[in-house]
């Protein structure tokens, strides 16, 4: 499908969905948030919240974030504030344990996390589509 947004993810399930501007990164969620933080500094706006789904960033191994297709000339203050808070929140939770929880899942559980992350992003797109 042709998208008017960037789809930044570490969820391999997204690769099967045919997003035209899918950017898959083999990173953990905190590193992915930091990457998105740099993109926001470069002028891209967050379209989805970086902590979707009420699943803590130290628990889910997967996260998908939608960014604006183009970078604005100026940084978006709201996006910057939200991503900075999300990074701080995730850093605090990653520090809870020597080995964060997300590294401990078996393959079946990982698959379930992928399905829920996909469901959340599909819902976000469904609602956005309803409003066109």
């Amino acid at each position: 499908m042709g998208n008017s947004f960037r789809c930044v993810t570490n969820n391999p399930l997204l690769k099967e969905r045919g997003f035209s501007r899918l950017e898959y990164y083999d990173l953990d969620v905190l590193s992915l948030l930091k990457f998105v933080g740099e993109e926001v500094k470069a002028g891209y706006r967050l379209l989805t919240h970086p902590l979707t789904g009420s699943i803590r960033p130290d628990i889910t191994p997967y996260k998908t974030i939608l960014l604006s297709a183009g970078a604005g000339a100026e940084r978006d203050f709201d996006s910057q504030s939200i991503i900075e808070n999300a990074i701080r929140y995730a850093e605090d939770l990653y520090r809870l344990r020597r080995v964060p929880i997300y590294k401990r899942w078996d393959s079946m559980t990982k698959k379930d996390f992928q399905i829920v992350d996909l469901s959340i992003i599909e819902r976000a797109l469904e609602v956005a589509q309803m409003n066109r």
């Binding site: 789904g53 469901s119 959340i120 976000a124």
Partner: peptide, 19 residues
């Protein structure tokens, strides 16, 4: 009320509050 997809939804009079 939350409405973000699988395992993250709320219903009012049977209606999912998404959108």
């Amino acid at each position: 009320v939350q409405c973000q997809g699988l395992m993250h939804d709320t219903y009012v009079y049977g209606l999912n509050v998404k959108g």
